[in-house]
Design a protein around this nucleic acid. Structure first.
Lengths: 191, 191
DNA sequence: ATCATTTCTTAATCCAGATTAAGTGCTTCT
DNA sequence: AGAAGCACTTAATCTGGATTAAGAAATGAT
């Protein structure tokens, strides 16, 4: 259901040999809960495809406050795109919430793939297009909706996440403090 | 300096024939100040490459308030990416600030280009990657910086824009009301 | 099972920024 | 040139959400 090849097959179709090539260029890793896969200041040398578990990326600001940039469930990719694309030190942390199984694709191997299987250029372009659209929508939502409406949208868009994330992470994602989030939820229940 | 072919040449190199093909697939248009090129609810059938002038994209929320999503100067592309990619009605307006000259590339012609000049798949992928990174950075900035710091960053990143945009548009871009923006600027001058 | 750490809640106080309202230049149109 | 509309400013008041602080509940480690 959520393997890498199935994910690719949604957008481009590969021959058996091409599929095998892909598999030789990725590695699978297993991580315990709360493992940090990438730290601020490091270069993001791999992008991660989630097989099991939930990962998140976040920044830490001058005051030490965390800001969740994204979550990734099985079947999703995650990386510090700035750092990954430019191969310069980035500002994101990437961390497992729970025990997780992840496929790693190095930047080098991705370049190899582009050369040997040009169709994958299309695959990754589509992935990036989708991220861009989602990101832009989030920006718009943050500017034009109330906190309550943003929470509502989040719950509807990611119903599987609402009940398995610590709610301080959801609070951070929608852009409020855990205290305020808690107050808001209590207010919602009264209705 | 800012023609379409020069823009493409920054990332991929085309043969003369390929360049000519590109030119046959775009059209150039001239617009007066305050012309609306795309309205909410319409399908974004073309993406726009700016030759002259400044365009901006924005949404209008339930209360009729405008939120600037992006600006585009000469040498930049602009479109409602959600609508353009999905060919469904979008929520963005795209409008010229001043008199402008713009090249239009239709979605159909873009698909033709992908087929006939696969190198362009790479070109557009890179453009989208850059947008994604910029967008993600803006999200992070909105979550972790004060209004003042965001304005400061904006001024440094787009020095050419600060002095030629109505400041209510800058206020909207960084996410505050024109009144507050005005107050903040007065406060900055005192220092 | 117990202790320790983290997460969540509640409540009081505070503040950045919104809202409302007026007033002051600018353009631009006729 | 005058009217009409925008863009910008200033100021008073209000509010969503932050901050601080404390306790309660859940989770995890030994």
């Amino acid at each position: 259901m959520k393997t890498l090849l199935e994910n690719i097959a949604k957008h481009v179709s590969l021959t058996t040999e091409e599929q095998e090539l892909v598999l030789t260029l990725v590695q699978t890793e297993h991580y315990k809960a709360k493992t940090i896969l990438l730290k601020e200041g490091q270069i993001c040398t791999h992008s991660f495809f989630i097989l099991k578990g939930i990962l998140r990326s976040y920044t830490v600001d001058q005051n030490g406050v965390e800001h969740v940039v994204s979550f990734a469930c099985p079947g999703w990719w995650i990386a510090d795109m700035y750092s990954y694309l430019s191969q310069r030190p980035g500002q994101l942390f990437i961390e497992t919430n729970e025990e997780a199984e992840v496929m790693l694709l190095s930047k080098e191997n991705q370049e190899k793939l582009y050369l040997q299987v040009p169709k994958l250029e299309r695959f990754f372009r589509i992935l990036i297009e989708n991220s861009l659209v989602a990101n832009q929508q989030r920006l718009i939502d943050n500017m034009s909706f109330t906190t309550e409406a943003r929470y509502d949208k989040f719950s509807k868009k990611y119903p599987e996440l609402v009940n398995c994330l610590p709610q301080k992470q959801i609070a951070s994602y929608i852009g409020v403090t855990p205290e305020f989030f808690s107050k808001m939820k209590a207010r919602l229940l009264k209705k």
